[in-house]
Amino acid sequence: MSLISFNWRVHFADGVLEEAIGSEIDMRGLGAPLLVSEAEMLTSELADRIRYSLPPRIRASECFPVLDANAPVEIATALQQGSFDTVIAFGPARMLVAAQEAVRYSGQKSGRKIALLAVPGLEGLPASWSASSGSKNAGAVASAIVCDPTVTFGIAPRMTASAGIDILAQCLEACFSCHYNPPADGIAIEGLTRVINALPKLMDADSLDLRREIMAASLSASLAQTKGPGPSQRLCDALCEATGRRVDRGSVKAIALPGIVAFLEHELDMDKRRQLTGLFPDAEKGSLAACLDSFIRDLPLPRNFPEIGISTGELFLAVDRLAQSGIQTDCYAHLQAIPEPKQRQN
């Protein structure tokens, strides 16, 4: 990798949401926003906070599609029906991706420049954003990103744990990638440190300081993904394809990640392995995989795939797809061939 690209404009502070949206709209001279999120967010507090953040003279239209493969088309259709100059996308990472796709498509088709303001929720930013930002024809992933930890306050520990493990996996797998990107390596370690320190404490008591740490880790994880998606990320994508359903990425990663790490950790040099192991509270347990497993076991997350509704058949189908997609030809070139099904059962 010779191109290192971080072209992001991020507002990051507690309670910054309203001010940042208003300021971006004023600064860019925008006046016709389309609010975009999934249908379930229509009456949410976050949706109301975003409506409130708009200057009173501005009337926003809204598009809240069901979050599925058709969502970008619905958003693009809404964009074509009005003369919008902004999309304010908020909530789940997949909705931010859908909005980005719709904005790019509509912009190319109409020749108009449409700003995208992205407000991530607990899940953080889409992993694919930083991965795509390295391509030579990619512009900024969004005109501006607003990270406000207060939007995640009060979310249930189970969902927080899942999001935390998703973030941890992104950071950890960035450390395993053989792509040469020193800033991303540093960012990944920084994100790991934050999430490992804050996540267990958040299970006991909610706190804005800890929420801020998790959101900062989430931003780091997104930036570290410049090195490309890791195996657990790809496994989640493959499971979505194989099952035709959305999967809880954090839960999938909580189950799969210790095994993936056990498989990969010997590829790391000793110093790096020691550095990563030392970030975990049970560093004396020895291997990185053991430390990770111990960390995850203390969180309220499922222990196996049937618990999250994924059958063994679906899992094998997903792993076969993953193998066919050529995982070992990309950034994990050092990864050995994925075991055959018989070996997997063991």
């Binding site: 507690d14 309670g15 009456t43 507090e45 109301d48 906070r49 409506r51 409130y52 708009l54 009173p56 009337r59 207060t150 306050f153 804005l208």
Partner: peptide, 22 residues
């Protein structure tokens, strides 16, 4: 920040803000 967070916690207040802005 608890006070700041309280601002948007009731949906009726949120609705009234929307009506006032409109």
């Amino acid at each position: 920040l608890d006070r700041a967070r309280l601002r948007f916690s009731d949906f009726r207040v949120r609705r009234s803000l929307r009506i006032m802005h409109e």
